[in-house]
Nucleic acid binder design. Structure first.
Length: 777
DNA sequence: TAGTTTTAAGTTTTT
DNA sequence: CTTAAAACTA
């Protein structure tokens, strides 16, 4: 397809590989795009090119990504080149699945008004089926069910046993699926799995989609799972042009079912595949790439590639060992402050990013940056939608659109507590036609389950509650009445009829409106109505500690967000779907200049002038008990993090770290040893043992002895202490002997620990390797 | 059954 | 240390 047509001007700035990738058509194309090789640019340009030069209808183009951020970015950049690209379908896999199911889910008996369950809801649902299992086990099973769906495995597939070897897994999974079908909602995995099932079962539907989408582009293909691969396969007809872009070295989502094999075996899975490699890195200075590559090249299963740096020059990455996480944070702050001096190299705080492995690590950085008055923003950990009051409000909304939603009902029917206990709830759920919780029913009629929804009334929990009301105790009856009333009010607010009555009533009830929830356009009225009438708002309001006020503020924010959506069921479904699929808060403070605090996983696709990778310690990064494939994934995570840096890369490692409130000694990360010596510059003190690899290799014997719980230091030395010996002490961590002096009680060993402490010990040379007395204590 | 106190456990990573 | 689950009391 390398025809000699005139190259449009917007292609001229691309290198020849990039151009080839944009111009390519015909057979499936796999673009192996190294970090910083301009892959987003290639995809967006390609979309524009296909529309503009090849006459593709924008609506016939489907581009899928893994994150909403990436989807937005892609839409934005493509539209800059070609406005018509706005009509192309640019979505995440999951949002595409939801879109698909709204239109075709009925083929599997799924109502179009389904709500998407998040992981918490999934656990709650499973909990109603496994009444006498521990929370932990339920969570574990829920996780495995999600995994099974990632692998496109159903309860009836024998292979599902490979996911969970406990014999009862398939039965649990099956019951879970049945209940979910009764309720009429879906979980995350269903958003991929169910569309595939429909496409496989209904060839005419598949045909329709194949004729609509002539072009399918997939970004971050290395993070796709088996179900997503199946989806692509089903969507691709003989006339479909498939183009996948990815980098096997950046596959970091194995833990949630991603299959690197998808990209490694792409050519076999899609016969006739052509491969184009983008190996020119435009982002980072050469030394940064060298350091990153030297680590990731320790991995076995990889396609292998050579990144060429278009930016020669630049300094070696800097590695610094810190005593503990507080000094680590101070070190970061110093670096940032220093660079921002009037004649320093940086003018923006946003040039900087601090990377860490787990969200919990952000705390010490936040504290320090706050103290030093350095502006920062924490990416990702904003758990707005996981807050209790928000989840309650969302459950009310969900129940409004789907009165069969048992999970939503259970969550809010007695919130705030109004005398409706477990017994009452179970009765109502039973009355609504749900099987109850008894594990004995052994009917194998799962195939006919879908038909149970024939009569929508039968599973309507609100209706069931109303029916049962007369037979309930006075307390429970009153409670149920309040709940039903709230739902009614919400429903009328949804259709805009209840507005007048609501405001009248509220004004009459309370003169003060200073902390009243206010509503504006669209759905916000409905949100406010529900949380007010249910008493949830009032409950938090009267709880007048700081939390209460914050919660009211959060509810207000939710109402504000809802005002963007049209009142009515349609708008409500859109609102709920948007929240489930995109939990990132639109950061209006994007314009603000701030340092970025971010987990390594979240950095994918981002770049910063200066990056500090922190916490390079065994147990943290890589996380403990990672080995083989999992360790390789951690290594790729290192690669991803390091290659975010454009100009400068800093790496820190602490010798002591506060974990679970206890300070404990840490070992340097194995990855630090994998960086080639000439690829990195170490600044400051080097921990004992680190600079001398041969000695370090013996450390297994240290670890072994470290497991006994004596507070005396131990050593692997073969006889006598001598200067330079490395040792481990339970309280002080790793250290080195820097002096030995004789005394009448025997030799005194002077030890300097990596955490900074210097201690003297009395050694019993003749009998063992133990230190006997802590002289300095 | 609701709210309190005590005890134990635990921090990946995310659509 | 902080949070969630279990145990306990009113």
């Amino acid at each position: 397809m390398a025809d000699e047509r005139i190259i449009p001007p917007y292609l001229e700035t691309l290198n020849s590989e990039q151009q080839k990738a944009v111009l390519h058509l015909g057979n499936p194309l796999l673009i192996l795009a190294g970090a910083g090789s301009g892959k987003t640019r290639v995809i967006t340009t390609k979309i524009a090119y296909l529309i503009r030069e090849r006459g593709y209808d924008p609506r016939s183009i489907l581009a899928v990504t893994f994150t909403n951020k990436a989807a937005r970015e892609m839409a934005h950049r493509a539209a800059l080149i070609e406005p018509r690209a706005g009509d192309a379908m640019l979505r995440t896999f999951h949002s595409f699945g939801a879109w698909f199911l709204r239109r075709n889910g009925h083929l599997l008996g799924l109502p179009s008004g389904f709500v998407i369950y998040d992981d918490d809801d999934t656990v709650s649902l499973l909990a109603t089926l496994m009444t006498d299992s521990s929370k932990q086990e339920i969570k574990s099973r829920a996780h495995l069910i999600a995994r099974a769906k990632d692998y496109f495995l159903s309860p009836d597939d024998p292979e599902t046993d490979l996911i969970d070897h406990r014999g009862d897994f398939r039965r649990i999974y099956k019951r879970y699926e049945e209940r979910l079908a009764q309720i009429g909602n879906v979980d995350f995995g269903d958003l991929i799995k169910k569309p595939v099932e429909i496409l496989k079962q209904f060839p005419e539907v598949a045909e329709r989609f194949r004729s609509r989408f002539k072009v399918i582009l997939v970004d971050e293909y290395q993070d796709s799972n088996i179900a997503q691969f199946e989806l692509l396969k089903e969507l691709c007809g003989s006339g479909t042009y498939l183009c996948a872009v990815g980098d096997d070295d950046q596959s970091i989502y194995r833990f949630r079912g991603a299959e690197v094999r998808n990209i490694l075996q792409f050519p076999e899975l899609f016969p006739g595949t052509e491969i184009i490699r983008l190996e020119e890195n435009y982002r980072s200075f050469l030394p940064i790439l060298n350091a990153a590559s030297s680590v990731v090249s320790c991995n076995k299963g990889r396609l292998g590639k050579t990144l060429r740096a278009s930016r020669q020059g630049g300094d070696l990455p800097v590695l610094t060992f810190m005593p503990n996480q507080d000094t680590e944070a101070a070190f970061c702050a110093d670096l940032i402050k220093e660079s921002m001096k009037p004649n320093g190299p940086c003018r923006n705080y946003s040039d900087w990013a601090i990377l860490y492995r787990t969200n919990a690590q952000s705390l010490s950085f936040e504290t320090e940056l706050l103290r030093r008055k350095i502006p920062y923003k924490v990416v990702g950990s904003l758990k707005f939608y996981e807050r209790e009051e928000i989840k309650d409000a969302l459950a009310l909304l969900s129940f409004l659109v789907n009165p069969k939603d048992e999970i939503a009902f259970r969550r809010v029917v007695n919130k705030p507590t109004r005398g409706v206990g477990a017994a009452t709830i179970d009765r109502i759920v039973m009355e609504a036609g749900f099987g109850g919780t008894d594990d004995q029913d052994d009917n194998h009629q799962g195939d006919f389950l879908l038909q149970e929804n024939d009569n929508p009334e039968s599973a309507d929990i609100a209706a069931a509650a109303r029916r049962l009301m007369p037979s309930l105790s006075a307390k429970a009856r009153a409670g149920i009445a309040v709940f039903l009333k709230a739902i009614e009010s919400g429903r009328s607010a949804l259709t805009q009829n209840g507005e007048a009555a609501f405001s009248e009533k509220k004004k009459a009830e309370r003169g003060d409106k200073k902390d009243d929830l206010r509503f504006g356009e669209g759905l916000s009225r409905c949100v406010v109505m529900l949380v007010e009438e249910s008493g949830i708002a009032e409950y938090h309001r009267s709880n007048d500690d700081i939390n209460g006020a914050q919660r009211i503020a959060n509810l207000q924010e939710l109402a504000n967000a809802a005002s963007e959506y049209e009142a009515g069921t349609e708008g409500l479904l859109e609102f709920l779907e948007h929240i489930e699929l995109d939990r990132s808060i639109e950061q209006s403070e994007d314009s603000e200049d701030a340092v970025t605090l971010i987990t390594l996983h979240n950095t994918k696709g981002l770049e910063f002038r200066r990056v500090i990778m922190t916490g390079l310690e065994q147990g943290i990064f890589p996380r403990e008990d990672k080995k083989d494939e999992d360790l390789e994934e951690e290594r790729r995570l290192f690669y991803v993090g390091a290659t975010r840096a454009m100009d400068e890369l800093y790496i820190t490692s602490c010798s002591m770290r506060r974990l679970f409130g206890r300070t404990q000694p840490m070992e340097p990360s194995v990855f630090l040893r994998e960086i080639s010596k000439d690829c990195i510059r170490v600044i400051g003190d080097v921990p004992y043992g680190f600079a001398v690899p041969s000695r370090y290799k013996n450390r297994s014997s240290f670890s072994a002895s470290a497991e006994s719980s004596s507070s005396k230091p131990k050593v692997s030395s073969d006889g006598r202490w001598k200067v330079g010996d490395t040792l481990f002490h339970d309280d002080y961590g790793y250290g080195g002997v820097y002096d030995i002096r004789e005394s009448e009680e025997g030799p005194i060993v002077y030890v300097r620990f990596n955490g900074g402490a210097e201690k003297r010990f009395l050694s019993e040379f003749q009998s063992s390797n133990y230190m006997k007395t802590d002289y300095s204590g």
